[in-house]
């Protein structure tokens, strides 16, 4: 006899279960965990190299850097001399998942850090489905890409909290319209914040550092629990 059984189970429930544990752990240790996503070549690693150099005296920082092959990104980050750097080589997988994160975090002392940067694999589609326990996603695009990118990848821009536009020193050469990319992004995600930077010249990076300081401060702030 044939019968239909409603099971209503999330396909990524295993991932989400681990992500939930990680999120709780980040909350307990008051670590700001940011998931950095972008296309390949937008400048995630360059942004982190600058950030580690500028803020290593101010904050404890760790980076988990995902790459399909090689540890090149992690190596560039280690050369800054700031923070705990761990590489995840996904060997073909197009995204990081919560289980890979859990494994990489074993080697990181969360009590020693204020900020955990997760440098995801360069890809604007697949990583959006995998929760890594992060506080928020930061999406990075660059002026050498099209200003319609938010419309092409609504899933990722919808789930992000901050959009960083990199390579603004090259904007004249690229026909990239800052107003247009912003209006495109807002139609997808009305609450998105924006910062424009050049990791090459350093322009705009202070705004990014201030944004980070604000996020860390609110993470550390004590909230009185009135429920009990």
């Amino acid at each position: 006899m044939e019968r239909r059984i409603e099971i209503e189970k999330q396909v990524l429930s295993e991932n989400d279960k681990v992500a939930l544990q990680l999120r709780q752990e980040f909350a307990d240790r008051r670590v700001l965990a940011l998931n950095l996503v972008s296309s390949p070549g937008s400048g995630k690693t360059s942004l982190l190299v600058q950030t580690l150099s500028a803020l290593k005296a101010e904050f404890g920082i760790a980076v988990v850097a995902g790459d399909v092959q090689t540890e090149n990104d992690a190596q560039r980050l280690r050369e800054t001399g700031g923070g705990q750097i761990r590489a995840i080589e996904t060997r073909g997988a197009c995204h990081l998942d919560a289980l890979m994160m859990e494994k990489a975090l074993v080697e990181i002392d969360l009590d020693d850090i204020d900020i955990l940067f997760i440098e995801n694999v360069g890809n604007l589609v697949c990583p959006s489905s995998y929760d890594l326990g992060e506080e928020m996603k930061v999406v990075i695009i660059s002026t050498t890409e099209g200003d319609d990118k938010p419309l092409k990848y609504p899933g990722m821009f919808r789930r992000s909290s901050l959009m960083i536009t990199n390579k603004i020193d090259m904007i004249e050469m690229c026909d990239f319209d800052l107003e247009k990319v912003r209006s495109n992004a807002v139609t997808v995600n009305n609450s998105l914040e924006f910062i424009n930077v050049s990791c090459r010249t350093g322009e705009g990076l202070d705004l990014w550092y201030d944004w980070l300081r604000k996020q860390v401060a609110s993470k550390k702030a004590t909230v009185c629990d009135k429920s009990g």
Partner: peptide
């Protein structure tokens, strides 16, 4: 308005199984 709370469209669920017990 652009302030939208997404209700549907993010699902990735196994909804049901159909089995034959015989």
């Amino acid at each position: 308005g652009f302030e939208i709370k997404v209700v549907n469209g993010q699902e990735l669920d196994i909804a049901y199984l159909k089995v034959d017990d015989d």
